[in-house]
Design a binder for these strands. Structure first.
Length: 823
RNA sequence: GGGCCCGUGGUCUAGUGGUUAUGACAACGCCCUUACAAGGCGUGGAUCACCGGUUCAAAUCCGGUCGGGCCCA
């Protein structure tokens, strides 16, 4: 036996790491994977989801990312000029909390500039960990052009977009109910609210109607009676129908408002809850907000920004909400107005990070208008190709629910600042010029800023001319919701503002890959922006993957104790280390999972092969190893086997003579490859990888290799050309899934790497459909013959008598006779 | 409470109207055959969650029930 040029007996995680390290330290990296907009090739820009650095990277996200890399690599293989950017999302409340926790000091006790500096330092440490994991899982991003969402360039784009939309009238200021965390002193988004169960007091209070009739109303928020806008009963509730239309007197002292409200019917009232009469206050819960809006009631401001009662609460003014509640109960008790008090477990909305009870209060905030543009957005969405098509529904469903504008201002610090200043009389605003990054809380408006009327947005002139007429200008201290930044990512990576010539070619952005859990935020807001700003769909393709779940189908979370850290899977098998994971099962018991070797190539192969895109996927390291490491071993050994035979000089031109079995397998291979090419074009990772896996671990080694073995050992040129041509082209087509594996094999055997192929291997080399039609017969005949040998107690390489070759395989008589030693 | 998605051998999975329902892992049996025992070959094993309907024909379409998941309230 000739010495194989692939010396390793099998693929290992250590080998993988060696190749990977060489790959990323190679000075040719940028040439290989960098974006060159002037190459003349079709441009394919991927709007990579910029990860938020927070210590460890979630395995489900890493799995999704590795599939985005498969798309990037497969599009390069198809000859496109791919921009696979590497961005990091660094704005937001998470890093603020991390810094507060690390130093044991609340944000507002710092100087704003010092705090921002601390955040920047801390997030940089986390960012480096993300970069390392990105490389470990084999991402072929353009790391040299890394972008950070807290950079001057990125924030300048966010601010410019704000200014443009403001001037267009698409951004407005308004006083509306918002969810507010009085401890962190900021507005928060719905997505940041969590519900926890707490024991609270349900107080039944005696009210009186204008006629003196006693009515009992149950509430957990008696301190909000002062902000009561209306009292409601269910329309079908006969007990109270005689009260409807009457006035009812508030049982507490109030200031600066009427001391009575009307009684109406409303379908949202639950008759069986308490007495069946509901007081609607601004704002006890989301239902109150809905009722106020629906009935056009003017809300009262009962709680201020410090979480204290306002003057309408009369004697409660200035008290913290909790103290006010105790106080009002006490005074009602003294007046004999308490019917009863029950301790009840109740869901309380709290802020996700601080666990502080949140309030819904009226705040003057900035909003992006969105309700007027839904139909136009839907028209644009119709032009986008969704993969898989059914996941488009998540977006359409969410859009059905849009009934209010998007609040975009936050009272935090480590975010992009709202780029606006107010004149001393507050009637005019100053807006920074496009392309600059400004910090209005500590800067004057820059030269080139515009002055506009605050209400009408009429352009009044330039800041440089008018600055002396505006009095003392005050910079906005609020910042943007982080989605305001994130939803520019496609514009930013496609060259908006910074590279207009590239933008012309690259927009709509070729691909938005993302998880389905952020359809209603990231995808929706991005599409909203492209409709408002450019009246175009934001993307050509949107690829929406499912979520990574634990082995039992539950979402991974800290509280369930079922999380798996990405690095433990990627490093499993390196330097002989095995992996072991303790995960809580569905019955609450710990289950120990163990694996010996996984690594990035096996992990990627698993994700590519195991489920259709868009479905939630269960992550079980044991299963990943069991099902897919063997596939790598198999493919590696086919290549290793091939590596002992000399590579023919000219693999690119088909030899004039090829044996029939070689023409057969080449035809099968051509069919497989055209399927793969089609699937790569359609972003169908699953089908492409399945086709390659089935060919490479099935028909090729089990059937053809067994036929060709003897000839290969005898130095047959036809067989040698066939196996090498197949291995070389197979690895090119397979390289998007397992780049380092393919790279190692092809650069060892053929002096050129599969990852550098920029044109899909040509097919057909030989494509004879008559031969493909015989594939089933061939496989059946082989299986039947092996079975007969087994039944006769013969070893597979023993001669056997009395087997006749089926008539349709008559052309294969010699081959099959030799292969099975038929006599 | 509302919306959406899903339910296929022990486990995971393919399959959106048409032969005997795909494949993988696990199980079992045989084999160290000059690439591979971290292999190979073979064998079992599923009334496609349940009930009803449409149809010549249903895993597939429709309605309902049950179970799981995600999102929202």
């Amino acid at each position: 036996m000739a010495k194989p040029r692939l010396p390793e007996k099998r693929w290992t995680v250590d080998l993988e790491k060696r190749i990977q390290e060489a790959h990323y330290s190679d000075s040719g990296y940028d040439l290989r994977y960098g974006f060159n907009p002037d190459s003349g090739k079709e441009i394919f820009v991927i709007d990579t989801p910029p990860p938020y650095p927070s210590g460890t990277w979630h395995i489900g996200a890493v799995a999704q990312y590795s599939m985005i890399d498969v798309i990037a690599r497969s599009q390069r293989l198809l000859g496109k000029e791919v921009f696979f950017p590497w961005g990091v999302d660094r704005n937001g409340i998470n890093i603020e909390f991390t810094v507060e926790k690390k130093h044991g000091k609340k944000m507002r006790t710092y100087d704003r500039g010092d705090f921002i500096h601390l955040c920047r330092e801390t997030i940089e440490e986390f960012t480096q960990a993300m970069r390392d994991t990105a490389a470990r899982v084999g991402l072929s991003c353009d790391f040299a052009r890394e972008y950070l969402t807290d950079s001057t360039e990125y924030r300048a784009v966010t601010q410019s977009i704000f200014s443009k939309l403001f001037k267009m009238g698409e951004i407005i200021e308004d006083l509306r109910p918002n969810i507010y965390d009085p401890v962190e002193k900021t507005t928060i988004a719905d997505a940041e609210v969590e519900r926890i169960n707490r024991i609270s007091k349900l107080v039944d209070i005696k009210w009186q109607t204008e006629d003196g009739e006693e009515v009992i109303i149950s509430t957990t928020r008696p301190e909000l009676i002062c902000a009561c806008g209306i009292v409601a009963v269910h329309p079908d509730d006969d007990r109270y129908s005689h009260l409807v239309g009457k006035k009812i007197i508030l049982p507490v002292e109030v200031e600066g408002r009427d001391n009575f409200v009307n009684i109406v019917t409303h379908p949202s009232v639950k008759s069986e809850f308490g007495s069946g009469v509901l007081m609607v206050c601004s704002f006890g819960d989301q239902n109150d907000v809905a009722v106020f809006r629906e009935l056009g009631l003017k809300p009262f401001q009962a709680i201020d920004l410090d979480g204290c009662m306002t003057s309408i609460s009369g004697p409660l003014t200035g008290m913290k909400v909790k103290d006010a509640r105790e106080s009002v109960i006490e005074s009602l008790e003294q007046q004999g107005r308490i019917h009863q008090i029950q301790e009840k477990e109740q869901e309380v909305p709290v802020s996700e990070r601080g666990k502080n009870p949140v309030e819904t209060i009226l705040l003057k905030e900035w909003y992006v208008r969105q309700t007027h543009i839904q139909e136009r957005m839907k028209e644009h969405i119709e032009e986008i190709n969704f993969v898989p098509p059914r996941n488009k529904q998540f977006l359409l469903d969410w859009m059905q629910n849009i009934s209010i504008d998007w609040p975009i201002s936050r009272r935090r610090w480590y975010h992009t600042e709202i780029p606006i200043w107010y004149s001393e009389d507050e009637s005019k605003v100053i807006v920074a010029p496009s392309g600059t990054y400004v910090q209005p809380w500590r800067e004057e408006p820059p030269s080139g800023s515009d002055v506009l009327d605050r209400e009408s947005r009429e352009m009044l002139g330039s800041w440089d001319e008018l600055k002396d007429d505006l009095g003392k200008v005050v910079g906005e201290s609020k910042v943007f919701d982080t989605w305001m930044d994130s939803s520019n990512s496609n514009l930013f990576v496609s060259g908006y503002l910074n590279q207009p010539d590239v933008f012309d070619k690259a927009f709509p952005t070729s691909l938005r890959p993302q998880g389905k859990e952020i359809v209603r935020t990231w995808l929706y807001y991005t599409l909203l922006k492209s409709t408002l700003l450019l009246d175009k769909p934001g993307f050509s393709n949107v690829w929406i993957d499912g979520l990574g779940m634990d082995p039992w189908g539950r979402k991974m979370s800290k509280s369930l104790g079922n999380g798996i850290d990405a690095d433990t899977v990627l490093e499993c098998g390196a330097s002989g280390r095995t992996g072991s994971w303790k995960i809580k099962g569905t019955d609450g018991k710990q289950v120990q999972l163990k694996a010996n070797k996984i690594g990035s190539e096996c992990f990627r192969l698993w994700k590519a092969c195991d489920a259709q895109v868009g479905d939630d996927f269960h992550i079980n390291p044991e299963e990943i190893e069991a099902k897919y490491f063997g596939v790598l071993t198999k493919l590696f050994n086919v290549a290793r086997f091939a590596s002992q035979f000399e590579v023919p000089d000219d693999l690119d031109s088909t030899p004039s003579h090829l044996n029939i079995e070689d023409r057969w397998i080449l035809s099968e291979f051509s069919m497989c490859m055209s399927q793969v090419q089609e699937n790569w074009s359609a972003l169908d990772i699953y089908s492409a990888t399945q086709a390659l896996k089935n060919f490479g671990t099935g028909i090729l080694p089990s059937h053809w290799l067994e036929m060709a073995k003897t000839r290969l050992y005898d130095g047959d040129q036809s067989a040698a050309w066939t196996i090498h041509r197949i291995v070389r082209d197979f690895m090119a087509a397979f390289s998007p899934v397992c780049p380092f594996f393919s790279h190692h094999i092809t650069s060892t055997l053929y002096e050129s790497s599969a990852v550098d192929v920029r044109k899909f291997p040509e097919t057909p080399i030989v494509c004879d459909s008559d031969l493909c039609a015989l594939s089933n017969s061939i496989q059946e005949f082989n299986s039947a013959t092996w079975k007969q040998k087994k039944d006769a107690g013969l070893s597979l390489n023993a001669p056997i008598e009395g087997i006749s070759i089926p008539t349709d395989l008559v052309d294969f008589t010699d081959v099959l006779t030799a292969m099975h030693k038929l006599e």
